[in-house]
Write a protein that binds this DNA or RNA. Sequence first.
DNA 1: GTATTCATTATTGTATACAATCAAAAAGGA
DNA 2: TCCTTTTTGATTGTATACAATAATGAATAC
Lengths: 221, 221
Amino acid sequence: MATDEHIHQQILNAIVEHQLPPGARLPEDRLSEAFGVSRTGIRKVLQRLSLEHFVVIEKNKGAHVNRPSESEALEVLDSRILIEPQLIPALITHWNPEQSSRFRLMTKEEKQAEANGQLAEAIQLTARFHYELAHLSGNKVLASFVEQLCYRSSLILAAYGTRGSVGCECGDHAQLLDILDTGSAEDAQHWMSHHLKHIRSSLILESKEDTNIDFQRLFSR
Amino acid sequence: MATDEHIHQQILNAIVEHQLPPGARLPEDRLSEAFGVSRTGIRKVLQRLSLEHFVVIEKNKGAHVNRPSESEALEVLDSRILIEPQLIPALITHWNPEQSSRFRLMTKEEKQAEANGQLAEAIQLTARFHYELAHLSGNKVLASFVEQLCYRSSLILAAYGTRGSVGCECGDHAQLLDILDTGSAEDAQHWMSHHLKHIRSSLILESKEDTNIDFQRLFSR
DNA sequence: GTATTCATTATTGTATACAATCAAAAAGGA
DNA sequence: TCCTTTTTGATTGTATACAATAATGAATAC
């Protein structure tokens, strides 16, 4: 069975897990035969993915995985820096031992996946940790926006991340859980802010204006 | 000429201007003949509008204008309360006399439209004032999210607003411009926060659980 | 040998046809 | 008269057909 939602999730996973790298083309007929549905269904999914900024569709040229610009990358991270810490106070009112153990389980799986070299799993779990926290705030509108930003961050790391970093090498997500267990919203906010700023600054933004490379200078001799 | 973008803007305007009230059905063939394109093009637009939460599409039932739930309404306003004031510091670095006069012109048109009873114009201008400010922050990712929230707010006011209020009866948008001209980010943030909270609290959220009305009690005698 | 033009191929854009589903009216029975 | 069942009509879901566009490679002229 291949429902729209299923296809969407499938392609999105492939993108954020870096199976489909930035710039990869997504021909409609190839996808339609892969999923066993007609182009109509594929087009619907591709359009949605483009509105969510995971793919870009150029008129008469088709769809390809978005290659985030530097400014887009920074803006996404800046948005997270602005929003995610602010969600902590609301989040902490819903915090309890049950949630704590649920999230601790996630961090364990994270570390395990990272250790076993399961890059795809690790990336998914890292993003999920952040957006599930956001959902705990109770504001679904903001949470789903943050969720999208987390997925976009995975794509950004595919383009600008350092090789080994799946995202969060700076200290452990478990640290945050320890802080949340103490109940200090302020400390948690600081941790989150620092954490995201660290990711932001770890992006390698080589200022290659790839539109006009100076081949003259590059190949002289 | 009826491009996708054009059709989208056209329908969106009709929704936020309360021409198409919450709950209004949007049959595909009716729209297709209205815009002179096939159902294919209409479906694309409707799908986009549904992802943007302006319409909801029910399987085999078609599309209708979204009737925001109370929680959705509050969450949208809360999101704006959380984000918009935070954009002021970045915004103020780009503030200059040119921008000031541009926005003052907008507030003039706002008041004029309101005075002339041009409800549609007034609603559009009120929303535009907010999201154009957001765009001045320089963060396009956040700005376009705020833009969407502003449009959604217009839809929310259609459902829960007091009759006369097009949105911002509490003091004038011009007040904010005065503050911005002084250069005090802190004051501007406070004003914005207060302004949005006022709108939030002006919503009339009658707790009618219209799913199960107690007809027994309602019609006894 | 190089450059320009033309033709071919692959891919997307748009419309339409048919099947599937739902809602409401009509018919029938108690 | 009221309730159930059936049928009909309208509307959407999905696939396919055809037109339009862009990219690639071949052919010809210089």
